[in-house]
Design a protein around this nucleic acid. Structure first.
Length: 433
RNA sequence: CGGAGCGUAGCGCAGUCUGGUAGCGCAUCAGUCUGGGGGACUGAGGGUCGUGGGUUCGAAUCCCGCCGCUCCGACCA
């Protein structure tokens, strides 16, 4: 994308309504614009990040054996009456009446709908296990939306639902999802830690939330330093889920609501880590709560009908954009992890109109195809440096008149600020690596 | 849901108390000079002052209603 033609409205001044870093930076870097309280429009740069996160989530879900579907945002009230949640959910649910006075709602989650789909078509234990997910917009009418996309009313969420013949199968599904989540967050360049959680209105007796560490997070967290060294991507092939789960849950990790000071005291002081965190995922095992309430049954080997065991697994896709920024930024702007950056590199033409600069930039831009944002604007160098830092591209390829004449460029790494003079080919190789 | 604010140009704000020509900075447009960390100069465009009503010779300003947004707290897959 050429910045001169791109719809990337950056702003210098700090928007008055935004209180935290990620919200300010998302507005300033031109990622989103608010359209009403807790509801945002995604602009090209922000949408690219959102799509990158979605892609990683999708790849890991598929790899874990889940199948993608796409359910609607608008749901009939009838399904929610079956589960009993139409009344329980309260004012957080956005209720809608259509022209025939039918009661509808904008889905805050999809347990009811997935169970309805499941019971229509799955009739035998032979079809289990099955795990279905989708990535779809949700709406929860929060009393007080805040923190930009991290606590919006409308948000993009990946939610998966597993169906198994028995509790052991459901627990296996749960553990598989937990590993998939850890892999997902690691691939995004985020430090996430699973913590035992309350099950809340969803119900069930096995639940973990996934907390991304960031100094500005909403919850206080405590964890064992040994989490810092775990490589969830190392276990290629068929993972041993039981060993993984035993290993992870043996380590101490808790939010302040679940914090156990006695267990905490048992950890060597040097290994105690305290900090702030942002919840970006939550998984639940809840057994037959919904399959019973909605009478979803399949035939077992003995011919008898039974209620499958379920779990549900959510990742806040749009919230992750904000969480990633909270976890990685400085005074100048965003510092994107490579895997989710909107562009791998920015090409800064410091002297637009100079024949050597223009030619070199054009060739770099062509070589990087869609992976680079080319700052071809007629602005001064300082403007380009500041905008590139603000937008947080992992690499900046800086092309100035002196260097261009000599066939050299500068390559800057956003995360470290390190700048080296290299040949254009070396710069391309680095960016692509 | 309790408490507190705000709404004036694209953004940030002043003007409101004490009614009388709607302003400032940034941004935008044109031009000139510049050219490695948000540059300078000259000129220009851009406003139903959130909205409806009331008071008044006259309302951004005073009064009443409504709408929207934000912050603190409570709440929160």
């Amino acid at each position: 994308m050429r910045l001169s033609r791109g719809f990337i409205p950056t702003i210098k001044e700090i928007p008055s309504e935004a209180q935290i870093a990620s919200h300010r930076l998302m507005l300033r870097a031109g990622l989103v614009r608010q359209t009403s309280a807790g509801i945002y429009a995604w602009l090209p740069l922000g949408l690219r990040v959102l799509r990158n996160i979605e892609r990683i989530v999708r790849e890991e879900q598929n790899a874990a054996g889940a199948q993608e579907v796409l359910m609607p945002t608008i749901q009939p009230a009838e399904l929610w009456r079956e589960s009993g949640r139409y009344d329980d959910y309260g004012k957080e649910m956005l209720r809608i009446v259509d022209r025939h006075d039918r009661e509808m709602l904008y889905g805050p989650t999809n347990e009811e709908m997935i169970v309805d789909l499941f019971r229509q078509s799955v009739k035998s234990y032979r079809d289990l296990p099955i795990n279905l997910y989708h990535i779809q917009w949700k709406f929860r009418d929060e009393v007080r939306p805040r923190f930009g996309v991290m606590r919006g009313r409308e948000f993009l969420m990946k939610d998966a639902y597993s169906f198994d013949v028995d509790r052991a199968g459901a627990v296996r599904a749960y553990r598989g999802m937990m590993l998939a989540y850890m892999r997902t967050f690691q691939r995004m360049g985020l430090k996430a830690i699973p913590m035992v959680a309350d099950t809340g209105p969803i119900g069930g007796d096995l639940s973990h939330e996934f907390i991304v560490l960031a100094p500005t997070g909403e919850s206080q967290v405590y964890y064992d330093a040994s989490f810092e060294g775990v490589d969830y991507l190392a276990d290629a092939g068929t993972p041993d889920l039981d060993r993984f789960f035993a290993d992870i849950t043996a380590r101490y990790a808790a939010t302040d609501e679940k914090h156990d000071t006695a267990k905490w005291a048992e950890i060597p002081e040097a290994d105690r880590r305290e900090g702030r965190g942002i919840e970006v995922g939550h998984i639940f095992y809840f057994g037959t709560k919904y399959t019973k309430a909605m009478n979803a049954t399949v035939a077992g080997p003995d011919g008898k009908m039974f209620h499958p065991e379920m779990g549900s697994y959510g990742i806040g896709v749009s919230r992750l954009v904000g969480a990633a920024i909270e976890a990685s930024h400085d005074d100048a702007g965003i510092i994107w992890p490579d895997a989710i950056a909107p562009f791998k590199a920015a090409i800064l033409n410091l002297k637009n109109g100079d024949a050597a600069c223009d030619a070199l930039c054009e060739s770099l831009y062509a070589a990087l195809a869609g992976d680079a944002l080319y700052d071809d604007r007629a602005d001064r160098a300082g403007v380009k440096f500041n905008d590139a830092d603000l937008m947080g591209h992992p690499w900046q390829i800086i092309v100035g008149p002196r260097g261009a004449a000599a066939g050299r460029v500068e390559l800057k790494r956003r995360a470290t600020g390190e700048r080296v003079e290299v040949s254009p080919e070396e710069a391309l190789a680095k960016v692509r690596s």
